[in-house]
């Protein structure tokens, strides 16, 4: 024997099932699903241009909210710094002066090396590496999910940022620009599984393939390297620095990606695969530099 369920207080007053015709009640029950199905159908039939426009509109609508939070954080930091004593400021100024002197020296060396490279390129008729313009940008938002790792930066089309530009930070490669909007841009981080780039182990010229990996919680970001030559060895105690190869023309050569901490033979035995430990600061970025290719502008 079955008992009819008693309607809760909120639904008292509705017609009892026995009084309403069965097909109508069934339709009433299915109506929300039918409505959703119609919405989905209409959505699927919408032209891609309309959907893209809607996406960009939503993004641009949200952008000021994200950016305002970033400005609020900057202000908070500013007031935090104001609390420091004069002694701290003097010490920081002295450190900055030392750094400045060191960088001045490096700039002179760089100019000298650049001149040498240009002379060699013209002598050997080598294709020159692309030139970049550095564009520092504050990080508005960090997004470190299991499926993607990205940051939103506070510069976009208004500063001539172009899609695909490499992004660096003090620890090396940060990622590359995946989307550019009017005042913001999205950077896909090098730890993201969607990022793949050509790399070499420092001191070696043979290229291999680097790809972002799965990033466990409470552990440094990680990536994977494939097609590593068999004679390259790396362990956690003797890691090898992985740098950009310059192949592909996106990233300049020699930028640090991370450190190869393990190298095991792949299943086919022809190459090795390895684990790359990335800079732990990658997930707490506050400022990055976009290298905008000069040809793009």
């Amino acid at each position: 024997m079955t008992t009819r369920p008693v309607a809760p207080c909120a639904d008292r007053g509705r017609p009892t099932p026995a009084l309403s015709p069965v097909p109508s009640r069934r339709f009433d029950q299915a109506r929300p699903f039918a409505t959703l199905a119609i919405v989905v159908l209409v959505w699927l039939l919408l032209p891609v241009a309309v959907k893209s426009f809607l996406r960009v509109s939503f993004f641009e609508f949200e952008a000021p909210l994200e950016v305002s939070a970033s400005y609020a954080r900057d202000l908070q930091e500013y007031w935090g710094l104001r609390l420091h004593s004069n002694t701290d400021l003097i010490a920081a100024g002295r450190d900055m002066a030392r750094l400045h002197a060191a960088y001045d020296n490096n700039i002179q060396q760089n100019a000298e090396l650049r001149g040498q490279i240009e002379r060699l390129e013209s002598l050997l008729r080598l294709p020159s590496f692309p030139e970049y313009r550095s564009e520092p940008a504050r990080v508005v938002r960090r997004d470190f999910s299991a499926w993607w790792q990205r940051v939103v930066i506070r510069k976009g089309k208004n500063f001539g940022i172009v899609e695909g530009s490499p992004v660096v930070f003090t620890g090396g490669v940060a990622g590359r620009v995946s989307e550019v909007r009017s005042t913001t841009a999205i950077v896909e981080l090098v730890s993201s599984p969607n990022v793949r780039l050509a790399a070499v182990v420092e001191g070696d010229t043979r290229p291999m393939s680097y790809q972002g990996g799965i990033n466990p919680s409470f552990a440094p970001p990680k990536g994977n390297v494939e097609f590593m030559p068999l004679d390259i060895f790396a362990t956690r105690t003797a890691p090898r620095r992985l740098v950009t190869s310059g192949l592909g023309g996106v990233f300049p050569p020699g930028l640090t990606i991370g450190y190869v901490v393990s190298a095991d033979p792949s299943t086919d035995g022809l190459f090795k695969t390895g684990e790359v430990e990335l800079d732990s600061r990658l997930s707490s970025l506050t400022e990055v530099t976009v290298l905008v290719p000069l040809e793009a502008n």
Partner: peptide, 27 residues
Amino acid sequence: LICDASQPVHFGFHAFLFGLATVIVQR
């Protein structure tokens, strides 16, 4: 759609999931 615009998923992915979940709860 708000969630879709800020994540690298098909635009409409979360909208569909939220819509379906809403309809099921409403039922």
